[in-house]
Design a binder for these strands. Structure first.
Length: 404
DNA sequence: TCTGGGGTCCTAGGACCC
DNA sequence: TCTGGGGTCCTAGGACCC
């Protein structure tokens, strides 16, 4: 088997788009966002600015940092253009997020040449035609290709020849393995394991002891370079959720009710748009100290109803709050729906009054969906007005919940 | 003045059934 | 009557990814 699998990853994507659209931003440390850094340019990363970082901290690290508001619909449009270029070479393109994808060119090399040449052509075309830097890793497996693209950044191409895989992999730090985050890295380091090579040599039983059966086995097999995953397009979503952080405040029942209605509305309208319903509803609360708790319940029947999801979530959150009377303030509320099923067939065209209550309610909510489709989300809705004023802009939420 | 939002998968204990 | 094992579902929490 040869190296025909590509991992393509747009560099500092949101920030690169802003620099593309406004040439005066090029070469400058910029951050997309305000209260929170959603993305930082490479010039800003040099100072230690990272995505997810509070704006204040970022300013402290880099006083000349320029904050720019996001152009969220542009991000979607440009990313789609980039991966359309990839699809000129093969239909086997698996988007894993807005800014990255796996591409299997095994069936295309007889037309377009060796995989590294295809990768170089894609990079050149994306640069010439769209103007964005794209890093690509080429290897025999997904895992190696992904690591190669990380090593290639910024704006580079790294090819891992099949006969040099161990040579490439073993000196690299363990945190480059997909699934090794801060906690796992720390645990491994405590055992003296810091490189992938050391991990590959470690006793599998010891790793399972240390990390749990599943994580231990996965990490060990990736370190030993055993990764059978194929490139596939079209996985179905397994859960949908919405949450909103707020300034610390007492859990006033009225605020909780209105916020959960808004969140339930976001989740349920997405469910209805996908013709899906869910049986398990989860309510989440985060307290002032950032400790979070959740309560969930599985219903006898799946639902996509705004009012049912909102009401159940309210009960769950109220129960969670009652279990923690010592907590005086909350900092986040969330709603999730899982256990998804395809929507049941509609009830036949009974007269409105003769339909069951849930179906009548769903018809009402569908009507709301229809108005929004025509006039925009803000045109009609549940408790959305006050929520818009706080936190992250809705266009970013829309982007985060997009379908790839 | 301690960090956004949307996801996936795993674990562990308990309930319940056979 | 007691003991045992296996399987599945549910719930709460956690690690990790983009």
């Amino acid at each position: 088997m040869s190296a025909t699998l590509l991992h393509a990853d747009l560099d500092a994507f949101y920030a690169s788009v802003e620099q593309l659209m406004d040439s005066t931003l090029r070469g400058l440390p910029i951050a997309v966002g305000g209260g929170v850094v959603l993305a930082a340019s490479y010039e800003a990363k040099v100072f230690g600015v990272r995505g997810g970082m509070p704006g204040r901290q970022a300013r402290r690290l880099c006083p000349e940092l320029r904050f720019v508001p996001g152009h969220f619909s542009e991000y979607q449009r440009l990313a789609d253009e980039v991966f359309a270029v990839c699809e000129d070479f093969t239909p086997v393109v698996e988007r894993v997020s807005i800014d990255e994808a796996f591409i299997d060119v095994a069936g295309s090399t007889h037309l377009f040449g060796p995989a590294p040449d295809i990768a170089a052509t894609i990079r050149r075309r994306v640069s010439d035609e769209i103007g964005l830097p794209l890093s690509i890793g080429v290897a025999r497996t997904k895992h190696l290709a992904k690591i190669a693209s990380q090593v290639a950044k910024p704006d580079g191409l790294v090819v891992v020849e099949t006969e040099r895989e161990s040579e490439f992999l073993h000196p690299l730090p363990v945190e480059l393995i997909w699934g090794v985050g801060p906690v796992t890295r720390e645990r491994l380091e405590a055992e003296g394991i810091t490189t992938i090579g050391q991990l590959a040599d470690a006793d599998p039983n010891q790793l399972e002891q240390l990390l749990g059966a599943a994580v231990g086995a996965k990490v060990a097999s990736l370190a030993r370079n055993d990764d059978p995953r194929r490139v596939t397009s079209g996985r179905r979503v397994r859960s949908l959720s919405a949450q909103s952080a707020n300034r610390r405040r007492p859990p006033d029942p009225d605020f909780v009710t209105r916020t959960l209605l808004h969140l339930a509305d976001r989740v349920s309208s997405r469910l209805r748009a996908k013709h899906r319903m869910g049986r398990t509803i989860t309510g989440r609360v985060r307290f002032a100290d950032l400790r979070a708790v959740s309560r969930s319940v599985t219903l006898a029947e799946a639902t996509s109803s705004t009012s049912i999801i909102a009401e159940v979530a309210r009960e769950l959150v109220m129960n969670a709050l009652a279990d923690h009377p010592e907590e005086r303030e909350i900092s986040l509320l969330g709603v999730a729906v899982s256990g998804l099923e395809d929507e049941a067939l509609d009830q036949p065209a009974l007269p409105f009054a003769a339909r069951s209550k849930p179906v009548a309610r769903r018809d009402l909510e569908r009507a709301v969906d229809g108005v929004r489709e025509k006039f925009g989300r803000g045109s009609i809705g549940f408790a959305s007005v006050e929520l818009r004023a706080q936190g992250v802009p809705d266009p970013f939420r829309d982007l985060a919940e997009r379908d790839l």
